[in-house]
Design a protein around this nucleic acid. Structure first.
Lengths: 356, 356
DNA sequence: TGACATAATTGGAACGTTCCAAATATTTAT
DNA sequence: ATAAATATTTGGAACGTTCCAATTATGTCA
């Protein structure tokens, strides 16, 4: 269609000024006379000018591309979708746009998309690293002065900022809640023991148990894949135990759903005959029957916060690696046997304050 | 950190060739000698060169930016999340990256993000337009030779490609299925009557009813907001009818869930006492109790297909506005009373072939 | 060996912007 | 009215790549 795009020079000619002046108004410089600014703007509108960020960026030596990269491992999981929405909100209102990619837990894919994003000149990256991500993987980025914020899963050795939810406090409050309901034998179900998140949640479980004056028994923690199927498997083992537990905190909501399935298969009604608490508060948690009592981590909030952190670092020019642990709250619904709650996503909620 | 980025010239010097040669190997040209190619590649790796697409793009006169824009109205809705994943899959393997933005149904937001994407030089756009989007809104884009593919909702007057699911055939098959189960009075519940999607689905309902040899009664179609609450409202009205229906097809899954709620509030068990069928097959549909019989639209497939279409147009250089209607299939689960199905997302499924 | 084809390489110029130093226009103060 | 200050505007020269036309190296054929 249009042969040649409208450039700053076209505007300059049409407005009777120099390209430099046009550039100045583009940048909102206070140096230009109000009259000329108005005229230039008018001409721009008239000719349908569109700013070429690529060119601008080229000159400005990488400083500010107005693009941030976001990579998650499973957009299909509503947890990450919400996270992305949170990022988008703050990033968008700062005039940035987000490159969003999905790795499906594939580390090769992750490398590819990060490389691609880099070629496109992102000025920052928010990433929920795929399973086997090496801490050194983001070294080149930070070496190039591109701030990186790791979310959800933390990356031990890497010198990047990170923001994770307070797994420990969350699990602890879940256990305390169950203990408060009179449960004496509370199991910890699901999750792979070789991950940092598992360690944190287990630690929280342990502190909760001890804080409630109960004994910590190793046989009450049974690991399994962090999936629905894993939950079925885990509850099966737990129920076969000598002194069987009467309640369980689960590694995440998927496991919790599986636990409910397994319970029902044994003619036990979750909530009534056995209390179960999840972790994450995925959307299905409130619609399920029974509605799942769970620890809500507010993924959208994490996204927003991560984005703010990233923007701060982008603007500061230098990236101080900083770590924040976000608050988490227990949402009491039905599956713990504490009774129904009226308002959907609310209910009795225990907010857990967080350190630095 | 690193003062100055590594450029093609640095590579050229280090490898003892000219920048032109380096450029050639960058583009995989067959003109360069294998030996030099290898050496250049080695040097690039050694110096940690990263390609600057912005610069390249500048020279190549807008032709190919390797960026596609994707805008959806609600990423939080798993329907759109899956769509985005579908787009990402094909786009990624074609070496593109996607700008993904969320409009939350705000048309201003939509305008902003599209403008921003344009400044960044996207070479194509996939958009699920916000509610009140004007057909003329994408005119400038196509005028600039940037192909646009509209998905999910179609945009009547716009001369852009679009891809929507076969609402009519889907609804028709749902009705036929219910009729096959012996239902004589089947209601059409939920949705706003002023939208194209509603019209299509209603038309499908009507054809289904007639194809089954039943009479079409206007009082059996009750509109309402396309939400869970709307479903409750609609089933309330439907049940108050003189000759009350024994089954219903719903505008979408949210409505269907609401219908189930409303049924239960009246001590009627969905599936057993009243058959309900949804539309969309959102993830919750299979996990719900009873599992929802619904028309599956495969959002990820739409995403993939839309992306393919877009890439084709980008490569072709010229955009023939083309319209495709994607196949849809009825997934029979429990809520229609046809009995339980063993495998999760499968069950008896009726694939509906689609025209052009 | 010379003439010619072919393979491989190469130096600018260009893409659309921003930056800089310098030029010009306008005020202000004397 | 003139110097000094201030407000505005302006030509290049970059930024890192690709393209083009032209050059040089290598091979082939008689």
């Amino acid at each position: 269609m249009t042969k040649t795009r409208v450039t700053v020079i076209d505007i300059a000619n049409a407005a009777g000024v120099s390209k430099s002046t046009v550039s100045l108004v583009l940048q909102g410089s206070s140096l230009v006379n109000e009259g000329t600014r108005a005229k230039v703007n008018a001409v721009m509108r008239e000719l349908g000018y569109v700013y070429n960020r690529g060119a601008a960026n080229l000159r400005q030596a990488g400083a500010k591309s107005k693009i941030v990269g976001v990579v998650v491992n499973d957009l299909t999981n509503s947890f990450f979708a919400e996270l992305a929405v949170g990022v988008d909100m703050v990033v968008q209102s700062a005039g940035f746009v987000q490159f969003l990619s999905n790795t499906s837990e594939s580390i090769d894919r992750q490398r590819e998309v990060v490389a691609s994003m880099r070629e496109h000149g992102i000025s920052g990256l928010i990433v929920s690293p795929a399973r086997a991500t090496d801490a050194a993987d983001f070294k080149p980025l930070v070496a190039a002065g591109i701030p990186v914020v790791v979310v959800v899963r933390n990356l031990p050795g890497a010198k990047v900022s990170s923001i994770v939810s307070d797994n420990q406090a969350g699990m602890m409050s879940a256990v305390k809640h169950l203990a408060g309901l009179g449960h004496k034998r509370i199991a910890f179900l699901g999750g792979f023991p070789d991950t940092a998140v598992f360690d944190d949640r287990l630690a929280g479980y342990r502190s909760g148990v001890e804080a409630a004056g109960l004994d910590y028994h190793e046989d009450l923690v049974v690991s399994s894949p962090p999936s629905r199927a894993g939950g079925v498997e885990a509850i099966g083992k737990a129920i076969a135990l000598g002194r069987r537990p009467t309640a369980a905190v689960c590694f995440n909501d998927a496991v919790a759903f599986g636990v409910c399935d397994g319970l029902r298969a044994r003619r036990l009604e979750p909530g009534a005959d056995f209390a179960v608490v999840g972790f994450d508060d995925v959307i299905e948690a409130q619609a399920a029957v029974p509605a799942l009592t769970t620890v809500s981590v507010d993924p959208q909030g994490i996204g927003r916060r991560g984005a703010q952190m990233l923007l701060k670092q982008i603007n500061a020019g230098k990236a101080e690696a900083e770590t924040v642990v976000t608050a988490v709250r227990l949402v009491v619904r039905e599956s713990c046997g504490a009774g129904k709650t009226a308002p959907a996503r609310t209910g009795k909620s225990v907010k857990i304050e967080t350190g630095r």
